[in-house]
Amino acid sequence: MPIILRQGPYKRFFYSNEGSPREPAHIHVRAGSKEAKFWLEPDVALADNNGFHAKELKSIIGIVSAARQQIVDAWNVYFGN
């Protein structure tokens, strides 16, 4: 599970096995027992949420959007795209 970024309580990461065939570029965000998944292309969009409240999700989307290109680049390096 490569961790891409940490900011405050949020850890942003990929799972090493992202499916077969591999899903499109996305990032998982975890804080404590809460976790959400965000698609990165064409725009940042919530794919799944387990525990985050709407206000917190809005903040996380802003954080992920600001680092979107860095995350996509890390995805491509890690998965060899």
Rank of each mutant, 00 (worst) to 15 (best):
15 Y>F: 15
26 H>I: 03
11 K>W: 02
21 P>N: 11
68 R>S: 04
35 E>G: 09
11 K>N: 07
62 G>K: 09
75 W>L: 06
28 H>W: 12
39 W>D: 06
48 D>C: 03
29 V>T: 10
50 N>H: 15
71 I>G: 02
32 G>R: 11
20 S>N: 15
20 S>Y: 12
11 K>L: 10
53 H>S: 08
78 Y>Q: 14
51 G>E: 08
50 N>I: 10
76 N>D: 15
20 S>C: 10
61 I>M: 11
34 K>N: 12
46 L>I: 13
17 N>H: 14
9 P>I: 03
5 L>G: 07
27 I>H: 00
54 A>T: 11
3 I>F: 03
64 V>W: 00
39 W>F: 04
26 H>T: 01
70 Q>F: 05
59 S>Q: 10
4 I>S: 07
65 S>Q: 15
24 P>K: 05
46 L>Y: 08
61 I>S: 04
58 K>F: 05
7 Q>H: 11
52 F>E: 05
29 V>K: 02
58 K>V: 03
41 E>T: 01
41 E>Q: 06
36 A>S: 15
23 E>Q: 14
12 R>F: 05
47 A>I: 01
33 S>Y: 03
70 Q>C: 01
29 V>R: 00
51 G>V: 08
1 M>E: 14
45 A>T: 05
8 G>D: 10
75 W>H: 07
56 E>C: 02
79 F>M: 05
62 G>E: 09
80 G>F: 02
42 P>E: 09
21 P>G: 11
38 F>Q: 00
4 I>F: 10
50 N>D: 14
37 K>E: 13
42 P>H: 09
40 L>K: 00
24 P>R: 04
